[in-house]
Design a protein around this nucleic acid. Structure first.
Lengths: 161, 161
DNA sequence: CTCCTTGCAAAGCCTTTGCATTTAC
DNA sequence: GTAAATGCAAAGGCTTTGCAAGGAG
């Protein structure tokens, strides 16, 4: 698994470098840092979490740059935006995790994931039918954990709105 | 179609009334107004659009009440929250439109919809497997219109971020 | 050398909150 | 009559923007 993430991170980085070159944009260390943070964590982070993690690692990045870079990565379809019901955007890597969805419990706020082998194909088929070029997609399911013992997670930042 | 929407609006309203009764909450005219606005429009509106539309109709509702009510309707799974990449939440009716998804063009900002007969069943199956009780779901696909002539839509509020 | 990018701080926008008033039941 | 809901305005929190300084190509 660790191997796999590292592989996708490298792949994302090299894709990013060619995108940048073809668009006449610059590959700054800040941009690479943001890309790596999203890819290595493998979780759904919000802009502030990315900012804090990078600052903790000693990167002197600013919030403005984090937001700018996330916009850029989103436009290039290297990260996807997801709405977990917290009234602010979360970001997630695209490469290597296309076929999954999020369950958001409206009672305890917990976010869990599920993979589906069908999902990817289905979205691709729908895009083809509707003349749409697929960049990224996100599927959120809101509801409640059925396992009431598991439904206890509470943390300020992670609770459903 | 108009007949169908009206039917779903009535169904939503009566469901809403029983929910309210069972929870000991009150059916105020403001709450009914918000519910009807979302159901009758049939589109994905944001909180401010709902507020403006109701004000234009002469309803003296406040923004605070619109937000409170949308929270309530979301918790009751009568409306769903969707993220169309505009950094603020849009709302959509749940009853009668479960099996559809949104295409968001990152170039022109246009949002279009597609229905899928498989989608609903697939999400239900995944919920069952993962011990999750389905309230509502939303699927957004970000990418670009392939039909370049159609890809021209530009309007401040509706552009992709 | 150019002009893209960064960082800071301020501004902007959406959403929530506190409190007095109103209202559904 | 009483607890719940509304409305206003202010506060809060996430995101964007303007501009000077810095840096990649």
């Amino acid at each position: 698994m660790k191997q796999y993430i590292s592989e996708q991170t490298t792949r994302a980085e090299s894709l990013f470098r060619s995108f940048m070159k073809s668009e006449g944009l610059r590959c700054t260390s800040e941009r690479i840092d943001v890309l790596q943070e999203v890819y290595r964590s493998g979780a759904h982070l919000d802009a502030d979490e990315i900012y804090s993690r990078l600052r903790e690692k000693g990167t002197g990045i600013s919030r403005a740059t984090v937001y700018h870079t996330l916009d850029l990565l989103f436009r290039l379809n290297l990260v996807s935006r997801i709405d977990l019901g917290h009234h602010h955007t979360h970001y997630e890597r695209v490469l290597g995790v296309a076929n999954h969805l999020h369950f958001v419990c409206q009672r305890c706020g917990k976010v869990s994931e599920a993979a589906s082998s069908q999902l990817d194909g289905m979205v691709e088929k729908l895009c083809a039918t509707h003349e749409f070029s697929l960049g990224s997609f996100s599927l959120q399911v809101f509801g409640e954990c059925l396992d009431r013992e598991a439904c206890t997670f509470r943390a300020g930042k992670e609770n459903a709105g």
